[in-house]
């Protein structure tokens, strides 16, 4: 008998399908999921579905060419004429 019950394995596998397809599982965890998915009617297709999702999102969401509107710099031009060091500071401090 393995370390984990079949129910444990199933719940754990379902929660780690994205980790699996992303390559974020260590070798032991990957083997655990592989072993479970071989016989599980949900997790085998689940892996394929997660792979399909990761493949489809950029195809579907990124397929539309979106152009910035012409006036995108208007506010900067009118309000920012004082130069880049004026009073409203805004840029994140993490790069300062």
């Amino acid at each position: 008998m393995g370390l984990f019950s079949r129910t444990d394995d199933h719940q754990w596998s379902q929660q780690h399908l994205s980790h699996y397809v992303e390559g974020d599982l260590g070798s032991r965890a990957r083997r655990r999921l592989d072993r479970h998915a071989q016989d599980c009617v949900d997790c085998g297709p689940g892996i394929r579905a997660m792979r399909a999702l990761v493949r489809l999102i950029p195809v579907i969401e990124g397929s539309e060419i979106l152009r910035a509107p012409a006036g995108i710099f208007d506010r900067m031009r009118s309000a920012g004429a004082g130069g880049p060091h004026s009073d409203t500071p805004p840029a994140p401090s993490w790069d300062a």
């Binding site: 995108i72 506010r75 900067m76 309000a79 920012g80 880049p84 409203t88 500071p89 805004p90 840029a91």
Partner: peptide
């Protein structure tokens, strides 16, 4: 863009 300009 305004904030980036002011924070550049």
């Amino acid at each position: 863009l305004l904030r980036a300009w002011r924070g550049i």
